[in-house]
C-alpha cells in the first residue's frame, strides 16, 4: 500500500514561563492512502500537537519541532519554508477543528469563507468558485445551498456548521484530511450523521483521514487503524481489530475497560491516577505509576517497541520474555 504520510521520531517542545513542556516526545507512525487512522488518548497527551505539527501550525514561539521528520509525498514538511507550506495547507492537507461554532469567522458569510481557500490556491473565476462552493455544500448535505451561501455562521446549527467546516476543508480536494475531535462539540445524534458523512466523503474522494478523538465509540465506527498516545508517545498502534480485541498495552486495556458497553455486563473500571508532568517526563515508561503490572524496569528504561504483528506494535516491557515468565508465575499462584 502506498504511504501518503510518514512521521518519524517527532519531538515538539513548548517553552512556557514554568519551564519547557515536552508535549510530543518521539512519535512514529505512517498513514496509507485512503485509510483512516485514529489517534486516541487523554487530553494533554500530545495528539493535537502532533497533527498541528503536520499542518505546520505549531505557534513558534513558544512551540518548536526539535527533532524528527514529517514526510508527506516524499517531502519533509518540517524543512519547508512557511511560504511553501502555505501552498500545501488547504490544498494537499486540510484540517477540521473541534468546535464548528468557533471555527467559522462570525463576520464573514459562509460563501466568502468557502471560496477564499479556492481563490487563494487555484486560478478560478468568481463564477467557477461559486459553482464549486455549491457542489461542496451539496456534497456535505446542506439544503438550499444557493441561499445558504449568503448567510452568516450564527444562522447555522452546530451540526450544519461542522458540515460547512468540512466543505471548506475539502474544497481544494486535499489528499489528507486531519480532523481534530470533529464530533466532540456536537450532540450524539449529530455526531453519528457527521461520522457517516466522513465515510461517504472518503468513498467519494478517496481522501486519507487522521482522526483525533478520545471517544472510542467514534474510533470503532470509522477508523481503519488506531494509534494510542500517552504522555507524548504512541504506546500502541495497530488495526482497529487488533486494538479492540487484542490490545497489549495495559493503558489501552484500561481505556477500553473504561468505556461503557451494552453487550457486556461488567463494572466500569476507571484508570486510577493522572498522567505525568511533561515539564520533566519520566525516563521510563510514563504509565508506570498507574500501571497494574508495573515492574522495576518500567520506571528505569522506556520500553522497546515490540512488534506483535505486521501492523501491530506496542511499547511495553510486558512483551519481554522475562516479563512473560513473571506473568506466567503470577497466574500459577
Amino acid at each position: 500500500m502506498e504511504k501518503i504520510l510518514e512521521v518519524k521520531d517527532l519531538h515538539v517542545n513548548f517553552k512556557t514561563y514554568g519551564g519547557t513542556v515536552q508535549a510530543v516526545r518521539g512519535v512514529d507512525f505512517h498513514l496509507n492512502k485512503g485509510e483512516t487512522l485514529a489517534i486516541v488518548g487523554e487530553s494533554g497527551c500530545g495528539k493535537s500537537v502532533t497533527v498541528n505539527a503536520i499542518m505546520g501550525l505549531i505557534p513558534n514561539p513558544p512551540g518548536k519541532i526539535t527533532r524528527g521528520k514529517i514526510i508527506f509525498k516524499g517531502r519533509d514538511l518540517t524543512r519547508l519554508k512557511e511560504k511553501k507550506m502555505r501552498a500545501i495547507r488547504g490544498v494537499d492537507i486540510s484540517m477540521i477543528f473541534q468546535d464548528p461554532m468557533t471555527a467559522l469567522n462570525p463576520t464573514l458569510t459562509i460563501g466568502t469563507q468557502l471560496m477564499e481557500g479556492l481563490k487563494q490556491h487555484r486560478n478560478v473565476s468568481d463564477g467557477e468558485a461559486k459553482k464549486r462552493a455549491l457542489e461542496m455544500l451539496e456534497l456535505v448535505g446542506i439544503p438550499n445551498p444557493e441561499e445558504r451561501l449568503k448567510q452568516y455562521p450564527h444562522q447555522f446549527s452546530g451540526g450544519m456548521s461542522q458540515r460547512i467546516v468540512i466543505a471548506i476543508a475539502l474544497i481544494c480536494e486535499p489528499e489528507l484530511l486531519i480532523a481534530d475531535e470533529p464530533t466532540t462539540a456536537l450532540d450524539v445524534t449529530i455526531q453519528a450523521q457527521i461520522l457517516e458523512l466522513f465515510e461517504r466523503i472518503q468513498e467519494a474522494t478517496g481522501v486519507s483521514i487522521i482522526l483525533i478523538t478520545h471517544d472510542l465509540g467514534v474510533v470503532a465506527k470509522i477508523a481503519d487503524r488506531v494509534a494510542v498516545m500517552y504522555a507524548g508517545k504512541i504506546i500502541e498502534i495497530g488495526s482497529k481489530r487488533e486494538i479492540f480485541y487484542n490490545s497489549q498495552h495495559p493503558y489501552t486495556k484500561g481505556l477500553l475497560q473504561s468505556v461503557p458497553r451494552l453487550d457486556v455486563k461488567e463494572n466500569l473500571q476507571p484508570i486510577e491516577g493522572t498522567p505525568p508532568d511533561l515539564f520533566s517526563p519520566p525516563t521510563g515508561c510514563p504509565f508506570t505509576p498507574r500501571c497494574p503490572f508495573a515492574m522495576e524496569v518500567c520506571n528505569k528504561v522506556y520500553p522497546a517497541s515490540f512488534k506483535y504483528s505486521n501492523t501491530h506494535s506496542v511499547d511495553c516491557w510486558l512483551q519481554d520474555e522475562r516479563a512473560q515468565k513473571l506473568l506466567a508465575k503470577a497466574v500459577k499462584n
Binding site: G18, D277, P289
Partner: peptide, 30 residues
Amino acid sequence: NPRDVAIEEIPDEWFTWREQNKEEQERLSR
C-alpha cells in the same frame, strides 16, 4: 535515550513487580 538501550543489556533482576504507591499516581503536574 531509552531506545538506544539494547534489550539484552537490561539486567534480569529488574523484571520484578513494583510496589504501587498512591502518592506517585496523584502527583500533579503543577
